[in-house]
Amino acid sequence: MARLGFDERELQSRRAIFELHDEDLQRLTAIRAIAERHMAEVVDGFYALLLGHPGTRRFLTDDAQVARLKRTQSAYFLQLFDGRCDLPYVENRIRVGAVHERIGLAPKWYIAAYRRYLALLLERVVLDIPDRAEALAAYQSLKKIVAFDMSIAIDTYIAANLESLGRHQAAIRELSTPVIRVHERLLLLPLVGAIDSQRAQQVMEMVLVRVIEEKARAIIIDIAGVPVVDTKVADHLLKTTAAVKLIGAQTILTGISAQVARTIVQLGVDISSMHTLARLSEGIELGLELVGKRIAPKEPS
């Protein structure tokens, strides 16, 4: 509900879009008795569609489950004729959409099933209304509420998908900013790939968090895998260096190719606030020195 941003205002605006007025709801309440009489046929017909197709049959594993679903479906069916279209109603519809999304039922099934639903409602319920004009009006009202329901179901699908996409992106971002502990108080961040604004932000935050966690005295940032070092990337590295300095650590920049060195100079960027070295191995040596350690050859025995 919250993630769909569904509140009273959205409810009213959506009802307006679907022209779902109070008269429609009243019309549906008026035929509730007829609907109830045909409920079992509609629900059975609906499941006949689902069971008849391999794409949906695989979701229906055993008879007990089908019986349970039919009960849920019957409740859903009757709610169409409750004469209510308020926030609890919407909440219920969102839940239905969320369940289907979770089990991986694609929206095409949802829409196809709704089409069958409308056909069944027309054959069984609407044609049983004695007055022709009344029947036609009732059918229009039914179509409105079913379309309204569908819109909510589809929105739920989209919201759930966006949410999982966001989770994946966060996971990838985390993977692409691996701050490695080289030694006590010495960290290494190998940057690979383009640094867009979002990633720059992520890198800075990750670096600061890790420097504090590890009580690091120095962090090596290796840019050998960064395709282009423009003023934006340089600016970002300088800002990270400044922030790292505030929490008591130094930054060592390594992996600077001859081309990148020359480009940085031509751009006129001053990176003297960082230690800069061509090779990562040199960066590690300097880093160890900064934390009071040294790589020494083994004593001859």
Binding site: P227, V228, D230, K232, A258, Q259, V260, R262, T263, L267
Partner: peptide
């Protein structure tokens, strides 16, 4: 050459940004 490629690519990056 590699230097010219880096210069051109960086220039493109700056101006596109």
């Amino acid at each position: 050459d590699a230097f010219a490629c880096a210069a051109l690519t960086t220039a493109a990056s700056e101006l596109a940004r």
